[in-house]
Design a protein around this nucleic acid. Sequence first.
DNA 1: GATGAATGAGGATTCATTCAT
DNA 2: TATGAATGAATCCTCATTCAT
Lengths: 224, 224, 224, 224
Amino acid sequence: MSEDEETPGTAPEETKPRRRQARGERRIAQLLQAAADVFCAKGYTAASTNAIAREASVSPGTLYQYFPNKEAIALELGDRLLSEMRAAHGQAFTPANLGLPIPQLVDAVLDPLIEFNCQHPVFLALMHGSEIPGRIAEEHDALHASMLARVGELMAHYLPGTEPAQRARMADMIFAIVKSGLALVLAAPEGPEREAVITELKTVLLRYLAPPLADQRLTTTPSP
Amino acid sequence: MSEDEETPGTAPEETKPRRRQARGERRIAQLLQAAADVFCAKGYTAASTNAIAREASVSPGTLYQYFPNKEAIALELGDRLLSEMRAAHGQAFTPANLGLPIPQLVDAVLDPLIEFNCQHPVFLALMHGSEIPGRIAEEHDALHASMLARVGELMAHYLPGTEPAQRARMADMIFAIVKSGLALVLAAPEGPEREAVITELKTVLLRYLAPPLADQRLTTTPSP
Amino acid sequence: MSEDEETPGTAPEETKPRRRQARGERRIAQLLQAAADVFCAKGYTAASTNAIAREASVSPGTLYQYFPNKEAIALELGDRLLSEMRAAHGQAFTPANLGLPIPQLVDAVLDPLIEFNCQHPVFLALMHGSEIPGRIAEEHDALHASMLARVGELMAHYLPGTEPAQRARMADMIFAIVKSGLALVLAAPEGPEREAVITELKTVLLRYLAPPLADQRLTTTPSP
Amino acid sequence: MSEDEETPGTAPEETKPRRRQARGERRIAQLLQAAADVFCAKGYTAASTNAIAREASVSPGTLYQYFPNKEAIALELGDRLLSEMRAAHGQAFTPANLGLPIPQLVDAVLDPLIEFNCQHPVFLALMHGSEIPGRIAEEHDALHASMLARVGELMAHYLPGTEPAQRARMADMIFAIVKSGLALVLAAPEGPEREAVITELKTVLLRYLAPPLADQRLTTTPSP
DNA sequence: GATGAATGAGGATTCATTCAT
DNA sequence: TATGAATGAATCCTCATTCAT
């Protein structure tokens, strides 16, 4: 039984607080959605908390009831985006996928990632944050690091023979390519053009990875 | 004889204005340098003209003697950077280079570009400007477009058989890879690590381009 | 029962907004009063929004919650003054007054006008605005024109035989005399001296108008 | 022989200073002219010293070599205007004119005044200065007072039987009428319309003054 | 909790005035 | 003296944040 569910009949006096929490959650979601929209439209720095409140059809005071300041909004937004992405995208790293040949692996990793970014364009907007100050930048680094780590795991699995420093460089590279490729994908009009861009992005990765993988195979599996 | 008087025979009336102009030019350079630093540190939106003036050890009024507003500073900075880059980097597109095999071509194009960006990190900072408003964005698009066009020319030269839409996609991709690769290069510590990152970036590009170039050779040069 | 709750039967949902509106109106009135004082003291151009806010014991931000800029303050002030004046002074132009002999008419028109200007010295201050820029000047012209038109109507009624161009000149003249006479009245110390100045102003007008009115009577009423 | 010209052969060492003074005077005149233009166009408060210097084709530094601050410019301008006006207009108050019948006196006083104001529209602009601060206002009062005194003298001459307080009121009134009438005259297009406005202004004054003058004649000169 | 008015520090920009040349 | 660059206080206005209701 999950902690959030309660058997009917238990402590009725908890219902109100619960409701409140539920309402609070809705408020927060609503505010984060508004923040996402405004960040997308204006960027973090130029986005004003008043604009976010207005977008959420809420007064500025209400916004500050849920977030201590503008930074916290971006931070929370980043966190939620990240865990949402993990949920939507995490199974790409399951052992099942780790056995896949690279082309399928790339599909299994990129397709949900692209899907996710199409639905949450703020994500990329926040990742690009060259304009983002202080703690947010750190937070971004955290996010960045966690994603890099995932890529690193894959690399370790598929290219165990490569020396770690080189593997790190490759992971950085792949991550950078994916990020900027994602931007191209989002910029392309939905439809066949976007599909073509997606294909192109995968092509870049596959061609980049093919030679080391071939090396790997030669080295590790002396053939049957 | 006062310092302001000159021996007859020289161009006397030009000296004073020239001094002034020289001083003005120096001021402008100093202000642009300060702006570059502040833009790098805070991003365009969060950079304040007062901060730029302070960084230039100058009063706000002085800044406004040379630039009508913050936008003009970024615009002029972009212009200067661009022409400086053209000067430093333009010969990469000379016919001599167009005959080069791809690896050398990539070196000829990327090396000066990397060099330039290491010396002028604002350039990348300004290119990323997702937070940049109005006319500056347009200006950036212009810069972006002009650089893309260069890449496009190269592509047309080396892959004439590829259909234009696909070539455009490839050019976008290459440009995106170079931009984000450049960021990795700048982020790497100077020395062997940076060199390794540079090599990796070139590797990505070469592996990406190798198959279409091979196709091209097969198609166009039926060989003896 | 909280203060915010009302007995059923009244219009409960209007109370809060109404309170707010009332507060807002008070603020606006307070700001306009402060603006009036500062405009009187320094003139429009030299009046600063910060000074107005300070005079109103309010922060600059608050001022800008109610007015988008300095111009809007002067415009609103002009509008309010004008309609207040129309309310206080409008009946001077009723048909009843139009039948009056000139001396009574002059009383009926000038007395409320003087009264009004004594209570709102900004009015004259704003009308003199040779320093006033842009839209405000236009607005002033509108106000000016509307007052001139009133005078013109009176003239047309009392001197129908005079040619229009001449009537227009006379109206301009009368308006100018009244404006500068009003300034003298305001400058005079309240009491008998002020009364004497008022009398003198009326005398100027009556003596100016007497001859054409006499002509008019001779021309139009051939007598019994 | 004018003061500024010197006979050849006299003290040569005085030539330079003299020249300098002459040059200085020219500079000052040039600056005051520029100031007049800018004050007319923008009003005192909105006129910037830089704009005045630019209008005079001079650097701001030069302006401050001749005037300690903006106020001093307006002050000096007022002074010069006043004495110029006295020169051009002073003979209106000569004993010869004092004997004239009122209509001719009015012509003798107003015509040069109007002429002067048409040539120096700043004069009126400065007189209206409701926006003018501090010492300038006082200075204006001085100017105002000196002109009022002139009118007062005339009144004393022509209406010796009227009680002084009333005469002062009448002088104020006349002065006010003339000032605002002058503004109408300047506003009218040159040509017959302007002439008509001038006539109207004189009419106002003559009608205003006729009754007391008639009284005066009855009272003082019973004569056969 | 919700509201939105209020705050005030801070940012862009101007301008009277000074100063090195 | 003339110049015009430099100054910095003062303007207008915005926005993150607080607070009375």
